[in-house]
Amino acid sequence: MKQNRFWAWVVFLAGAAYFIVPLVATFEFSLRMRRGYYSFDSYASVFSDPNFQTTFGYSVVIGILAIIVGIVVVVPAVYFVRLRMPWLRPVMEFITLLPLIIPAIILVYGYIRLYNSSSIIPFTGSALGTDILLVFAYVTLALPYTYRAVDTGMRTIDVQTLTEAAQIAGANTVQIITAIILPNILVAVLSGAFLTFAIVIGEFTIASLLNRPAFGPYLQNIGANRAYEPAALAIISFIITWGAMGMINVLGHFAPRTSARTD
């Protein structure tokens, strides 16, 4: 028993060190911009860089749009598959896993071929078109996570009976999804949203190859040309990502209680 616990701790500490040591080292390095003593100069330099502000703002907007489009696409899709076409579920599972298997670079080359300025649908022909393409690319990248989050959320409610109860009361499909289904899986949807956000904010490949002024390429550019700022940016990205993850946890406590009492 005691022996067991000892080794459990050793494994845990080794694992923790694997993540924490580089983090602490990076943080320590980011504080050494001013010679001789620790300061937050590198952070000040990052925040005052107008490129940081514009690229970060751009990625936040793209991230929010990707979240909205993702919800509008995924929630009704999962709902209808559960309600009317349950035999389609294995197919959905497979399709939504594809973005994990197919590298982003293949996706983006496919996009450039299909939607280039001399194609029938020239998305890449304008900045706005490329932005739209980027949003859809991110929806695709986040699909494995959003689909699973929403699907798990819907498993906790009796979709069919709730739908029928709302239908007989006069509600149409849009009213059922917005007033009944969505609120009951809100926590699942939001955890999908934060995962989407975490993916979008640091994504490099697609943003760079579509040549959009996103935060990912900015990070890469700074990383290649500066000494201390990249460390500060790594810490900032880390905080943003983990903040998003933490939000998922916090939201779990606000989940509506769905378990029906039968006493």
Binding site: I157, T161, L162, A165, I180, N184, T258, A260
Partner: peptide, 8 residues
């Protein structure tokens, strides 16, 4: 049979 009240 299963009540089916809207939990939210």
């Amino acid at each position: 049979q299963a009540y089916a009240l809207f939990p939210n």
